[in-house]
């Protein structure tokens, strides 16, 4: 595992990171390094320059503002999983962080790096889409916020523009009594989500007052499951309702489902409903308890 040669720069501030990016076209940003470094070492990726943003203070921190959570891009999976604020307000995200990779990956890997890398089988994006999160980025044209659902555009492809840097993720407050959950089928070797499902549901007056469901591992990027969501809205949260709604996930995956030697597209498509069902059921249970 020997990468090709590259220059290493460490940015102390966000402004410096932007200067370095401008000065070194094609440079790669390094945060926790758990996606980039393996690719470099395998020589599947190569780069002239690596800009380490791992010590940029502005990208750190996890704060609660009102009921929304602002998560600095350098927040690690382990920090997300251990955060009482995240668990209380966005449990799907805490759960997704807790089941990503292994302890080493969770201790080093960051949420910003994870979503910018945009692996189609990554856990955090699925939870973020179900929670209607916003991705805050800065770039040559200033700051902007991108809806999580619009951020992921393909396999390792995002809406990030040239020289834009993810700075934070904002998870907006859900309705009162919202519950959320993340459930995955973990690949036995890589730990990536063969299928990942996140659900965020509010139960009020005995019916599902809101429902957001997202699935990953199936098509090139995480997608919402609107048919599933519609089948839940206004219905009492019974096991039958959930099962019926979850089964509709197949309708929401219009593109051909990706497969690999471990799990074919056909299998993933046929069993996705099981994980969707479990995520919704867990979200409802938490919603009812909230």
């Amino acid at each position: 595992m020997y990468s090709t040669e590259f220059d290493y720069y460490r940015a102390a501030t966000l402004a410096e990171a932007h200067q370095l990016l401008t000065a070194h076209p094609g440079a790669k940003l390094l945060a926790g390094g758990h996606s980039l470094i393996p690719l470099l070492k395998l020589r599947i990726a190569s780069t002239e320059a690596v800009i380490d943003i791992g010590r940029v203070a502005e990208l750190r921190g996890l704060t609660v503002d009102g009921d929304s959570i602002r998560i600095g891009a350098l927040t690690t999976h382990a920090e997300l999983a251990a955060s009482a604020d995240v668990t209380r307000r966005a449990q799907a995200l805490a759960e997704a962080a807790a089941v990503t990779g292994d302890p080493q990956v969770r201790n080093r890997g960051t949420i910003g790096g994870n979503i910018a890398h945009a692996d189609p089988a990554s856990d955090l994006p699925i939870a973020l889409v179900a929670l209607n999160a916003q991705i805050l980025v800065t770039g040559p044209r200033g700051e902007r916020a991108i809806e999580a659902a619009a951020f992921f555009t393909g396999i390792m492809s995002t809406a990030l523009g040239e020289n834009e840097i993810v700075t934070a993720i904002v998870v907006p407050p859900g309705q009162r009594g919202r519950g959320s959950a993340y459930v995955k089928f973990k690949h036995p070797a890589s730990g990536y989500a063969v299928i990942g499902a996140a659900a965020s549901v509010t139960v009020r007056d005995g019916v599902c007052a809101s429902a957001e469901v997202a699935v990953g591992g199936l098509v090139p990027h995480v997608v919402r499951a609107p048919s599933v969501e519609r089948a839940l809205l206004g219905k009492p949260p019974t096991a039958d309702t959930v099962a019926h709604a979850a089964a509709l996930v197949a309708d929401d995956i219009r593109d051909e489902v990706m497969g690999d030697i471990f799990a074919s597209g056909e299998y993933r498509k046929a069993t996705a409903a099981v994980y969707v069902k479990r995520a919704i059921a867990a979200a409802i249970e938490r919603a009812s308890a909230a």
């Binding site: 599947i44 390792m156 492809s157 090139p220 497969g259 471990f262």
Partner: peptide
């Protein structure tokens, strides 16, 4: 190397 370590994404990337 792409076949050896990247098979998980080959089908998806090709299609994309």
């Amino acid at each position: 190397a792409i076949a050896r370590v990247g098979q998980r994404l080959l089908e998806g990337v090709s299609r994309m």
